[in-house]
Design a protein around this nucleic acid. Sequence first.
DNA 1: CATGAATGAGCGTTCATTCAT
DNA 2: CATGAATGAACGCTCATTCAT
Lengths: 195, 195, 195, 195
Amino acid sequence: MSKAERTKEFIIQKTAPIFNKKGYAGTSLSDMTEATGLTKGSIYGNFADKDEVALAAFAYNSSLMGVAVRTEMAKRSSYRDKLMVYADVYGNFGAVGSSLEGGCPILNTITEADDTHPQLKARAVDALMAWKERLTALIGEGIKAGEFRGDVDAEETAVTMIALLEGIVLFVKATGKQTHRRFLVNSLTRLIKEL
Amino acid sequence: MSKAERTKEFIIQKTAPIFNKKGYAGTSLSDMTEATGLTKGSIYGNFADKDEVALAAFAYNSSLMGVAVRTEMAKRSSYRDKLMVYADVYGNFGAVGSSLEGGCPILNTITEADDTHPQLKARAVDALMAWKERLTALIGEGIKAGEFRGDVDAEETAVTMIALLEGIVLFVKATGKQTHRRFLVNSLTRLIKEL
Amino acid sequence: MSKAERTKEFIIQKTAPIFNKKGYAGTSLSDMTEATGLTKGSIYGNFADKDEVALAAFAYNSSLMGVAVRTEMAKRSSYRDKLMVYADVYGNFGAVGSSLEGGCPILNTITEADDTHPQLKARAVDALMAWKERLTALIGEGIKAGEFRGDVDAEETAVTMIALLEGIVLFVKATGKQTHRRFLVNSLTRLIKEL
Amino acid sequence: MSKAERTKEFIIQKTAPIFNKKGYAGTSLSDMTEATGLTKGSIYGNFADKDEVALAAFAYNSSLMGVAVRTEMAKRSSYRDKLMVYADVYGNFGAVGSSLEGGCPILNTITEADDTHPQLKARAVDALMAWKERLTALIGEGIKAGEFRGDVDAEETAVTMIALLEGIVLFVKATGKQTHRRFLVNSLTRLIKEL
DNA sequence: CATGAATGAGCGTTCATTCAT
DNA sequence: CATGAATGAACGCTCATTCAT
């Protein structure tokens, strides 16, 4: 990895949590220099503009979710258990010190960038659709394997799961209490059991 | 209503949709003067600062939701039908020309202001909790009236409903298509039927 | 005159000589705040951007030439004497303390802005063409009045006069000495005598 | 020619037209790296700073004029014809694709650098004076050879010729049309005929 | 109460320049 | 010698805010 690539990575890692917490408009270049210890000139030496950093930071945040889910999922064997991984991972979003302090980047970005930053929004929508398709495929495999009922609507279940998971993020952000999280995990468990 | 009160109301009505679309950090005082046709001095004559307008705008946006729900709910008699009102109202968030173009203000505000604007976040959390309690109470009345099963957990159902409703907002914002909306309305209908 | 108009005028008067000396690219907003004692915000409160100030400054500089020429010209009666006014006025361009320290704004602007600032260049070209036409008309009147020969090409004479006058500006700028100026005034005198 | 000398030459050739078109203040180091394909470090390895490149570029641009004039002049025998060479060469300044697209470097540099870059201005003044002296000498030779009248003021004629030639550059830049050029060539021809 | 005019800090970005490799 | 990577100052411009009128 060249020096430039290392610095780019470094900038992304240091700024990604800030973008996730403060949003695109709320994150300034001064925030970025403070977090990295680099100068503005150095950041502009490695990225074309603030946009490019924001897009890279979103991709990075987005990938963190994926990694957390995949590593945990590999440990489980039944499809039902695999689906339940999400409930565990999403309950930790927003927790201080977790890898994604600011909550789910997809939710954050679609919410903020909807009317202000079309390119960033497009990336977040792509990520949301990819997520939905991954879930749909997983449920489809469960059906094929005979673990889930044959008359299950895989896509509808996937969309519903995502709604419940983002609901967890929202309520955890809102109150920080575990009560609401438990409610939603219950609903999620019931949904998965009925498959 | 005094002239001062009328002007305040006017400013709130004109700026509330902007705050809902662009967020707190993304909305500038120039946006506000442009939307109202007033001068900056005039806005500062009626509000202490941008914060105060943002708080009032959030309250206004928040109340719009309540009004839409209440007027529709009054027309329905069974508790099951009353609960279904939300599905109708939330499906229209994000639609151009609707009273709440930018989506659900509670979701928007908790998502954006979580780490940047504690006071605004507190108001949004209050609104979310009040909403949850209103729903919980409504379900409780349905139980008391014998329409819903006695062993239903009212609060859990309320939280789950909110997650599905915010899910609708998210997916409508993301894709603009009705497919995902229908999936979530299905899940919502099933949830309410099983009460 | 409103306060805004007075401030605009003030900004133009203070910045116009700087634009004429340093050019568009060489004049910074800091130059402008220093010259006026105003803040950047104040300048942007009165002009849309640096371009708008530059265009106004060019118009102002351009008009200064016209005023100097017209007041002097009014004192002379014969067309030959009227034409000679230019020689007097242009010899003072570039002199420290004169109203147009930086030289002829038309020459400066066409030279600098040719490949860098099309709008500004267009204004300068307009001014040059207007000047040529004014001169052509003046010579035409001299012909009609019987003071000049009938076979004189008015436009060719006008263009030649302008070249000699801009030559004065160039040589005065270059050396500051009067020798070259005298040479060109001689040529100009001969040209006018032969009309 | 060493490698260092070759690189220096290369940088000068590639950047000289940019300096002539955009001026000293308007030409950035990024313009220079873009034009040469070299890095900033490489340019600083061959020149002390931007100034030094600008001075070399001016010298290069200046010499281009001289070359064009000398090669053409060698083909002509009478002094009158030799003097007319300038009219041909100067009419092509500013023409796209010509070796000196941005016009006459002497006029450009004295106009821009008058109040901003004394060293560069000094070089341009030197070049102007050298030009004047070359012209004066040429006319002197013509007198000595008996081709021109004995009472001709050689220096005055030289200065006047330069003014008419720079006038051509100015008007060609301004309008791009040949009409004004023809007027000035007429005046120039008349001036030379009368010698 | 509203306006018009100003402020100063901060914005994202580009500048000329340096220097270890 | 040339490069890649950095720097800090300055760029043009917008921000939220103030206050005399």
